[in-house]
């Protein structure tokens, strides 16, 4: 079976990290799946989903490391008027940071609960906020 829920977030900052683990665990519980997999997948190209230890210090270090890779002041080809949007693209750093984090993660479901390491949490990463964002939580199994 496949059980899908959409999480909606209204992010508040340009860059921010939000722990999704409790909401993912609730959805797994709601699905009733005992043995299977869960995928957490962002629907956007300037956001990411990653797994890491939920510590304030690490969130800061991760943001710093990503900013070193894609600094705001660099010149980017993506900074231009986009005909398909009718607006100017100002978010090249968001696209590049999203490339590094990836757009999804998977976890095993065993005995109806998420099998995750003691330090593992699911993060939603905003790289072009504030914005209204949607994240799919897809539970597969039986």
């Amino acid at each position: 079976m496949m059980f899908v829920r959409t999480l909606v977030l209204c992010t508040k900052s340009y860059n921010e990290m939000t722990v999704l683990t409790p909401r993912v665990e609730e959805i797994v519980l709601e699905s009733g799946v005992q043995e299977g997999m869960v995928t957490v997948l962002t629907r956007h190209t300037t956001t990411g989903v990653t797994v890491n230890e939920a510590l304030e210090c690490l969130e800061s270090d991760i943001q710093t490391a990503l900013a070193l890779f894609a600094p705001e002041e660099r010149s980017y080809c993506h900074a231009r008027m986009l005909r398909d949007y009718g607006s100017t693209a100002g978010n090249p750093t968001g696209h590049l940071k999203a490339m590094l984090t990836g757009n999804h993660c998977h976890f095993l479901i065993h005995g109806g609960v998420l099998e995750r390491g003691g330090a593992q949490d699911v993060y939603f990463c905003e790289f072009d906020g504030p914005a209204r964002r949607e994240i799919l939580v897809i539970v597969e199994g039986g």
Binding site: C10, Y85, G86, A131, R132
Partner: peptide, 16 residues
């Protein structure tokens, strides 16, 4: 307006 793919803005987003 020839503005596309921008979605709707809840007032909460506008205030953010």
């Amino acid at each position: 307006l020839d503005i596309h793919r921008n979605g709707l803005a809840p007032l909460e987003h506008v205030f953010n």
